[in-house]
Every structure is written in C-alpha cells, then in structure tokens.
C-alpha cells in the first residue's frame, strides 16, 4: 500500500487540503473527492480533452496529471468560470451561438478558450481553431464553437472599452 500524501490545492480560489493516494488522478480528485462533476471524463486516454482544467492558468488534461502533482498549485474548473452568479462571456457565447449540442465537450472547450483569450484577446479564426485543437467535439462540427469564442472575444472587448470610458468620465468629473 502506497504512502498517502497531504495535498493543498487551490480550486476555483478556495484552498482544499486532503490526504490522497499518489495514484489518484487529478480528474478523480476533482470529481470524486470535491464533487465538482462539471469536469468530464471521456476517452481516459489523453486524447479527447473533455477533462481539461486550468493548472496555474494553463489548460491541461486532468486525466493525465496526478493530484499530488498539483500540490501547491491552483486549479480552475468550469465551476469557477462564472463570477458572482454572472455567466462568463464565453458561457454566454456558447448559449447565444449554439456552441453546444450534447454539452459533453463544453466544459473543456470553455477552459481551453478561456486560456486562449487570456493570452490573446483578439484571436483570428485560425488561432481559435488552433487553441481548441486539443478538444474534440462529436456533435457541433466546431463551427458554432468558433463563433461562440468570437462572440466572447468581442463581448470582453466591448466591456473593457465601456469600463475604460467610464473611467475616463470619472477622471473628467474628478478633474471638474
């Protein structure tokens, strides 16, 4: 019997401390130990990307990482994408553009797209396709997923412009 390890992992901003067997996969830690079942298991052979989560902001396949490896690191799952009860622009985009049918691939898709937009807020269509190339979808044919990501990019852009112009106004009124 292997020696268990205590891990401290920040999941969606909350510190979690648990004792785990070293062979416990991160995806099973997330689903079975924490009960966060938004992260799915598809192929279980590192090929489909439905188990994608962000590890320190970078998309990884949680079926191909041991929970002990994440000790001291931060994880974001699909449950941590909406903020204060507000859907993230990507989630809205998937709804508006019909970016999902069965929805099985959606959490992983959204997390890959999330990391893409963090790194590159104005991706071209090709860069979007490249960014989600590790995520398989059996239903949509990807077209509407790409549109959903474009929707989110435009939305984030608009929000940050509005934010900036509000700031400008505050500056003006402060100056006045």
């Amino acid at each position: 019997m292997a020696i268990k390890k205590i891990v401290r992992i920040k999941v969606n901003g909350r510190e979690q401390e648990t004792e785990v067997e070293p062979r416990l996969l991160l995806v099973h830690f997330i689903r079975d130990v924490l009960g966060l079942t938004g992260t799915h298991v598809g192929c279980d052979t590192s090929n489909c990307g439905v188990c994608t989560v962000l590890l320190d902001g970078h998309p990884v396949k949680s079926c191909t990482v041991f929970a002990v490896q994440a000790d001291g690191h931060g994880i974001r799952t699909i449950e941590g994408v909406a903020q204060d009860g507000q859907l993230h622009p990507l989630q809205e985009g998937f709804r508006e553009e019909h970016g999902l049918q069965c929805g099985f691939c959606t959490p992983g898709m959204i997390l890959s797209a999330y990391a893409l937009l963090e790194k590159n807020p104005h991706p071209s269509e090709e860069q979007i396709r490249w960014g989600i190339s590790g995520n398989l979808c059996r239903c949509t044919g990807y077209q509407n997923i790409v549109k959903a990501v474009q929707y989110a990019a435009a939305r984030i852009d608009r929000e940050s412009q509005e934010h900036d112009s509000n700031k400008d106004q505050t500056l003006v009124s402060n100056a006045g």
Binding site: A2, I3, P22, R23, L25, D71
Partner: peptide
C-alpha cells in the same frame, strides 16, 4: 483507468 499504486516524492 487507475494506474498501479506507487510511492511519490518531490525532490
């Protein structure tokens, strides 16, 4: 699939 048990260290 669950990998076989092992001990782990992180030098």
């Amino acid at each position: 699939m669950i990998p076989p048990a092992f001990d782990y260290s992180r030098p």
